[in-house]
Simulated scan of single mutants.
Amino acid sequence: MGPVPFCGMVLSDLGADVLRIHRTAEVGKPVNPVLARGRRSFAVDLKSARGVSLVRQIVDRAEVVIEGFRPGVAERLGFAPDVLRATNPRLVVGRMTGYGQTGPAAQRAGHDINYLAASGVLGALGTPGAPPLPPLNLLGDFGGGGMLLAVGVLAGVLRARASGVGQDVDAAMVDGSALLMAMVYGQLVRGDWPRERGTGPFSGVRPYYTTYECADGGYVAVGASEPKFFRALVHGLGLTAAIDLDRQSDPSTWDEQRRRFAAAFAAQPRDEWARRFAASDACVTPVLAPEEAPSDAHLAARSTFLVDPAGNAQPAPAPRFSETPPARPESAPLPGAHTTAVLTELGLDAEDIAALHRDGVVASAA
């Protein structure tokens, strides 16, 4: 489940000691090299009473447990939050689901697209007269899911450290994606948000807030909403004599604006426009592919991406802190890479550890 590994990655990036519990059957299988970075891995059979007992011992030493099961599954496995807090009262239990722990849809299967559909997000995405457009799985799985779970867990830890009392964090992707739409729902209350999909101010319908194709097939993003930025855009395109700056927000001029902007951008390749607008406040940016972004001069100067010796890039930890030096996350471990080390930390001797491996209760990466 993407949101839970993402939450673990974020917490690890921020300095938490994160231990991932893998199933023994996952040992030897590949992991996502970015989402799994910076943590340790313990492979155990949770259908075994001995395996459950080992994980309970680990939980007793933890501040946080995060799970992504459907409601009721953790309880059936022996990890009900109240049971865990009977021996670890400060424990914060983060519970990641699509529809939440309660409600008529709580047990329903779904994915990012379903949760966005239910929360009103998907219905606002896309162009007029066309079907709603899924935004990858960023708004449900990661923004409204894993990131919201991380925020909730951190808030729970702060309270537990102050009060000595843990609690559950019910992080549902329908809740989180709805929360990300706070601005839109606020504008709906005021009557400022159009009900037709693809006609809102940030949907691309306005010619000064959209994308344009360039001569080489590349694209630029234009976000010149404010008059001073619009003026810089028009000047940079050489259209000062053709565009009425005072009628920027007049919808009756938008077709003409769009036609002239499109023709101008189509006359030069993407990187030429990037060069021309590099020192301008016209809010014109080349649309970079994921494999191009790490080479962007600004992002490279900020070390927004980490690049390994083989040239593979991944997003660096964020945000930045003034007093905490940035850390380079350790590479993602194979499932079960730290099983023996964790068992040793629990006080088991070599003979006991060997028996657990032999009986299939735990497993280690080769």
Rank of each mutant, 00 (worst) to 15 (best):
9 M>D: 10
16 A>R: 03
20 R>V: 14
21 I>D: 03
24 T>S: 09
25 A>N: 06
26 E>N: 06
27 V>A: 04
28 G>D: 07
32 N>M: 00
33 P>M: 12
33 P>S: 15
39 R>Q: 06
43 A>E: 05
50 R>E: 08
51 G>R: 04
52 V>Q: 07
52 V>D: 07
53 S>R: 02
54 L>E: 05
56 R>H: 15
58 I>T: 03
58 I>Q: 00
62 A>R: 04
62 A>W: 03
63 E>G: 13
63 E>H: 08
64 V>W: 00
65 V>G: 13
66 I>K: 08
66 I>S: 10
67 E>P: 11
67 E>L: 02
67 E>Y: 05
69 F>Y: 01
72 G>E: 02
75 E>D: 15
80 A>F: 05
81 P>K: 06
87 T>S: 14
88 N>V: 12
89 P>W: 02
89 P>E: 01
91 L>R: 00
95 R>C: 13
95 R>Q: 15
98 G>E: 00
99 Y>D: 11
102 T>A: 15
106 A>I: 00
106 A>W: 05
106 A>D: 02
115 Y>H: 13
116 L>F: 01
118 A>Q: 07
119 S>P: 14
121 V>A: 09
130 A>Y: 02
134 P>K: 01
143 G>P: 04
146 G>Y: 00
149 L>Y: 03
149 L>E: 08
157 V>T: 02
167 Q>R: 05
168 D>A: 05
168 D>S: 14
177 S>Q: 12
177 S>T: 15
181 M>I: 05
188 L>F: 13
189 V>R: 09
190 R>G: 13
192 D>I: 09
197 R>C: 11
199 T>M: 11
202 F>D: 10
207 P>A: 13
207 P>T: 07
208 Y>Q: 04
208 Y>V: 14
209 Y>D: 00
220 V>W: 00
223 G>D: 01
226 E>I: 09
231 R>F: 11
239 L>Q: 06
241 A>H: 07
241 A>K: 11
243 I>S: 10
247 R>H: 11
255 D>F: 08
261 F>A: 07
262 A>T: 09
265 F>H: 04
267 A>S: 07
268 Q>L: 13
270 R>M: 13
271 D>S: 12
271 D>M: 13
277 F>R: 06
277 F>N: 04
280 S>P: 12
283 C>Q: 01
285 T>N: 09
286 P>F: 04
286 P>T: 06
296 D>N: 03
299 L>R: 03
307 V>L: 14
308 D>Q: 12
310 A>Q: 10
312 N>Y: 13
314 Q>N: 03
314 Q>C: 15
314 Q>H: 07
315 P>F: 07
315 P>A: 08
325 P>R: 06
327 A>T: 14
328 R>S: 13
338 H>I: 08
341 A>L: 02
345 E>L: 08
349 D>T: 04
350 A>D: 05
351 E>W: 03
353 I>E: 01
355 A>H: 00
361 V>G: 09
362 V>M: 07
363 A>E: 01
364 S>N: 03
366 A>H: 07
